[in-house]
Amino acid sequence: MVAVSYPARAVVDLAAVRANVRSLAAHAPTAQVMAVVKADGYGHGLVPTATAALAGGATWLGAAQVDEVLALRRAGIADARILTWLYAPGAALREAVEADIDVSVSAPWALAELAAAARASGRTARAHLKVDTGLGRNGLTPGDLADVLPEVLRLRAEGAVEVVGLWSHFAFADEPEHPTVKLQAEVFAETLETVERAGVTLEVRHLANSAATLTTPAAHYDLVRPGIAVYGLSPVPQLGGPDDFGLVPAMTLEAELANVKRVPAGQGVSYAHQYETPQDTVLGLVPLGYADGIPRHASGTQERPGGPVRVGGRTLGVAGRVCMDQVVLDLGPGATEQAGDRVELFGTGRDGGPTAEDWARVAGTISYEIVTRVGARVPRVHVDSEVPA
C-alpha cells in the first residue's frame, strides 16, 4: 500500500519504459531483447517495469536473484522467457525449474545442483552456460568449461538438463574502443565454436549489455540484455545522453518542502556547518536523506554546491551535509516558496531540471547507483503518460 502521507515519491512513467525498449530493439534489429529487471527493476518496481518492457517488445526478462524471477512468475508473467544467474549452493533451483525459468550455470557445482533440481521436479531444466571471457567475475573458466561439457552432454542424454544458451559479460562495454572489448568478443567467439563443436545446440548466444547494445553491433548475436537503458539512462554518458540514444528517463524523484524559514547571514547549515549562509536568506527543508538513497557524498560545502534540486523554476545545490532523513536548500533572500511546495531532485532533464546523471557526477558515482539506491520507504508511483488522466 502506498503511504500517501509520505512527503516524497519516485514517479515512474511506464510509457517511457515501453518506448525505451522499442528504441533499444531498433538499435539491435537482428536480436531479441531481454529487459533486465534485477534490483526491483533498478529501483523502478519489478513487476510494473517488467510488464511495461514486455509491452514494449521485449521477449525475455532477466533478474539476478532466484527470488526475483519467481516473483515475476507469481505476478502472472507466464509467457515471457526469464533468465536468472546469481545464486549460491542451496538456492531454490527446483522451484525455478518448475516455474519454467532458464537458469545460468557459472560453475561445475551449479550444473550438478541444477541437474538435481530437474530430477526432483521431473522436468528438463533449461541452462545457459556463462563463460568468463575476461571480466574476472562470475562465469566458467576455460578449464571449468572443458570439465563441464562432457557432463552437459550426459545430462542432455539423461533428459535432465538442456543447454540452450551461452553468454558472457563485458568489462569495458562503456568504453567501446577499449582493447578488452575486442579481446572478450574474440574469446566469446572461440568459446562458442568449442561448445558447438562439442555437440551442444544453442538457441541463444548473448553478450551485449546496455552499452554494447547501443555501441557495439557485432556483439548483438541472438539476444541483447539492456538494463539501465531500459529505464532511460545512458550507460555511456561520455558519448551521449539519453536523447542521443532515443531514451527517456523513466523515474522522477520529487518531494514537498517540509519547512521554510528565514535565517541571518553566517548561519551554519546542517551537521558540522560545512555551509554557512553568505547573506540573510531563506532555507528550505527537503524531507529526503541518505536513508532514502540520497548520496551523502552529494553534500554541499561553501566552495562546492551539493546535489542539484529543482525548485520554483531554478536549480539549487544541497547546502551542507546530507542527513539521514533530510537535506537543506539555500533558497535565496527573495524566495517565496512555502512548506508543501514541490521540489524535484531528478527527472527527465528535458525542462532543464536535474537528472540522475547530474547527481552521479556530484557524488562521484554512476546513474545506475542513484536510481537503484532510492530507499524502500519512498513510495513508487507508477503512471502512464500515454494514457489520458
Rank of each mutant, 00 (worst) to 15 (best):
A25H: 07
L316G: 10
A116H: 10
I101W: 14
R18I: 14
A75D: 12
E344F: 06
G246T: 04
Y271A: 15
A19Y: 05
Q238E: 14
D330Q: 03
T49H: 00
A363H: 04
V260E: 02
V161F: 02
S104C: 12
A110Y: 04
V163Q: 02
G268V: 00
R361L: 15
Q65R: 14
I228M: 07
A63K: 09
A16P: 03
A99Y: 01
R262S: 14
R18H: 08
V4Y: 07
S210Q: 02
H178K: 04
M251I: 08
N259K: 13
G352V: 02
G199Q: 11
D384K: 09
A10Q: 08
A339N: 12
T213F: 03
E186N: 09
G306F: 10
D222C: 11
A63M: 12
A39N: 03
T301A: 10
H44F: 03
A356K: 06
F346N: 05
A35L: 02
V195W: 00
H27E: 00
M34E: 11
V161K: 00
G159D: 00
R380G: 01
V36D: 00
G313Q: 13
S234Y: 14
F188A: 01
D132C: 13
A218C: 07
G352A: 00
Y221I: 10
A78W: 11
L14S: 08
P308V: 04
A363E: 06
S385F: 01
V322G: 01
T215R: 01
P142K: 07
Y290Q: 05
G139S: 10
V103T: 15
Q326D: 10
G57D: 07
N138E: 11
A218D: 14
A63P: 13
L257A: 09
H273K: 15
G312K: 07
V200S: 12
T30I: 12
A52I: 04
A250E: 01
P379D: 03
S367C: 15
H178P: 00
R361C: 12
P237C: 12
